[in-house]
């Protein structure tokens, strides 16, 4: 499948990827919204089932790389059901602020309710926002995370530039995203899992095989480790690097604003 992996050096025509399908650029956000509207209520359950709970470990390591300090302002883009935001809320303390942002209202609603249930809403703001056009002031954020969200953004280059704009100088971006397995054998096993087992699980748990098929396809179309690293450099991030996790199935990219 690696040959299908688009480098997404943003497409020149007026279309873009929606999984393995080419769709009109203006239509992608709405279609992605449709997918997440469908899975929102069972999103965390499905994540646990799909990854065997490992997504919690990937997120734990990402949070460590953020090196959050009390009093900082953290923006969690595509934060969905708020699991990262809840953790950040404790780390920044009462003097800090966490902004939970997502383009999808249904996901945000689930996230907001969950944060209230956890008693973690004091220093958290919930904002419906498009990653490409972040509604925040320049140089206002200490750290941005986007976990399993960048691949759903229509124009990743514009989104990266928007993130760079709102970051404070010295601030950092962490992109946690599915990537390319480093071993060909693992890649084959992973393909079988993604295109056979994952949609079946989606059908069983969320009664929605198509949405989970889209998730698998969108992972394959997402830029691989080196391509995303180059995209971050193009956007203006410095000191960029990445860590592969679970054999490269997932990678976390880190970059700083100079």
């Amino acid at each position: 499948m690696s040959e299908d992996r688009a480098n997404t050096a943003e497409d020149n025509d007026n279309t873009t990827d929606f999984g393995f399908t080419r769709v009109d650029r203006d239509a992608k956000a709405g279609m992605v919204r449709g997918v997440f509207d469908s899975v929102a209520s069972r999103y965390d359950l499905m994540n646990d089932l799909m990854s065997g709970g490992i997504h919690r470990l990937w997120k734990r390591f990402t949070i460590e790389l953020c090196a959050v300090r009390p009093g900082q302002t953290i923006l969690d883009i595509a934060g969905g059901t708020g699991d990262l935001a809840a953790r950040f809320s404790r780390l920044v303390g009462q003097d800090g602020k966490v902004i939970l942002a997502d383009i999808n209202a249904a996901m945000l609603e689930v996230g907001r309710d969950r944060l209230i249930d956890k008693g973690a809403s004091d220093n958290i703001e919930v904002v419906q926002a498009d990653a490409q056009y972040l509604p925040f002031a320049d140089n206002s954020i200490d750290c941005i995370t986007i976990a399993f969200g960048l691949r759903n953004v229509t124009d990743k280059a514009i989104a990266l530039q928007s993130m760079l704009r709102v970051l404070r100088p010295g601030g950092r971006l962490l992109v946690l995203e599915f990537s390319k397995p480093t071993s060909p054998l693992l890649g084959k096993i992973y393909d079988q899992y993604s295109f056979q087992i994952l949609p079946a699980m989606g059908r069983l748990v969320a009664q929605d095989a198509d949405s989970y098929r889209y998730l698998a396809e969108s992972i394959r179309k997402h830029p691989d480790q080196e391509t995303l690293l180059a995209m971050m450099a193009d956007a203006g991030f410095v000191e960029s690097r990445y860590h592969n996790m679970t054999g490269g199935i997932v990678a976390v990219h880190q970059g700083f604003k100079a």
Partner: peptide, 15 residues
């Protein structure tokens, strides 16, 4: 940082 898979280390440390 060590060369171990961060997910494996995170699992051990979380436990």
């Amino acid at each position: 940082m060590t060369q171990h898979d961060p997910a494996l280390l995170s699992a051990a440390l979380a436990g």
